[in-house]
């Protein structure tokens, strides 16, 4: 038997190289460094191993608790985003006159930076701003929306919902497009009302996507509110709108406590991980698998 030479197929390794090098060097290594430095008193120059001291400090810091509670409060935005996305998706799916235009328009917030959205919302809610002027008509004006903890949170949540419902709508629309329309016809013949069809067909069929959106938005609320908070309230008044990720930013980059910041960042990751697992466990994916 003639033994033919076996040439190694190098293509896959060469093709993976750019992604692998960048992800390894600029993500995996830094993650490792963060884990290591969460056990040091790193200030950017000097670092000394101090065991679990950072974590102890974190758990003894009263501000951390209020900051964590803030992040939990902002979770109210998640069901709001889901409802807004669902309403938008279901209504667009009705395909009334101009539905493509509406779909196009509902995407617009998704294209804008949180910075722009944040600045816009804070402008609207400024004393003497648009909202104030409208309220004055009803004799309610001169309310400092951003000067009061609860109303400041409301403004951030509104901005967040407005920014996020477009993406949610797309995900739901894409899930709805895979639902067999024969199901709706059958239900209509059975005399099911519009509500009934929504509740008994649409929502169960897209429950997997709803779960996906919920997971994504919870993660987002915990890790990515930085830009909104930065431009709308800068965390205030007091610490009332400071989220975990924003607080981590301040301690790390403004106060230069890198070891402490690293511990906070890791804690943030653990929280997100637990919330994700909890959601996946709490809402078993009931989405009916269609097709192949």
């Amino acid at each position: 038997m003639v033994k033919s030479r076996r040439r190694k197929n190098v293509f896959p390794y060469v093709a993976l190289l750019p992604a692998a090098v960048l992800v390894l060097g600029l993500m995996v290594l830094p993650i490792g460094a963060t884990i290591w430095h969460s056990f040091t008193n790193w200030d950017g120059v000097n670092s000394k191993f101090i065991g679990f001291k950072n974590f102890e400090l974190i758990f003894h810091n009263p501000i951390i608790y209020s900051v964590f509670v803030n992040s939990l409060i902002f979770l109210i935005s998640v069901p709001l985003i889901l409802v807004a996305s669902l309403i938008a998706a279901v209504l667009v799916y009705e395909k009334v006159l101009g539905w493509r235009v509406f779909r196009f328009l509902f995407f617009i917030p998704m294209v804008l930076s949180p910075v722009i959205i944040g600045v816009l919302f804070s402008t609207f809610f400024l004393p003497g701003g648009a909202v104030d002027q409208v309220l004055r008509v009803f004799g309610l004006g001169n309310f400092s929306w951003l000067g009061n903890p609860w109303s400041a949170r409301v403004v951030v949540i509104l901005a967040l919902v407005w920014a996020s419902f477009g993406f949610g709508m797309v995900v739901l629309l894409s899930a709805m497009s895979t639902v067999d329309t024969a199901l709706y016809d059958a239900a209509a013949i059975d005399g099911a009302s519009w509500w009934r069809r929504l509740r008994s067909i649409t929502i169960p069929m897209i429950s997997g996507s709803l779960q996906f959106l919920s997971v994504i938005n919870v993660i987002y609320t915990f890790t990515s509110l930085f830009a909104f908070v930065y431009v709308i309230t800068a965390g205030g008044p007091g610490f009332s709108t400071t989220t975990v990720d924003y607080y981590t930013y301040i301690t790390t980059f403004e106060n230069g406590q890198f070891g402490y910041g690293a511990a906070l960042a890791l804690l943030l990751f653990l929280i997100v991980l637990m919330l994700t697992i909890a959601q996946v466990k709490l809402f078993p994916n009931r989405e009916v698998q269609q097709g192949s």
């Binding site: 038997m1 003639v2 033994k3 033919s4």
Partner: peptide, 13 residues
């Protein structure tokens, strides 16, 4: 086993 195409062993081709 062995696969030949023509008189070439083709297993590794």
């Amino acid at each position: 086993g062995t696969l030949r195409i023509g008189d070439r062993v083709a297993n590794q081709l």
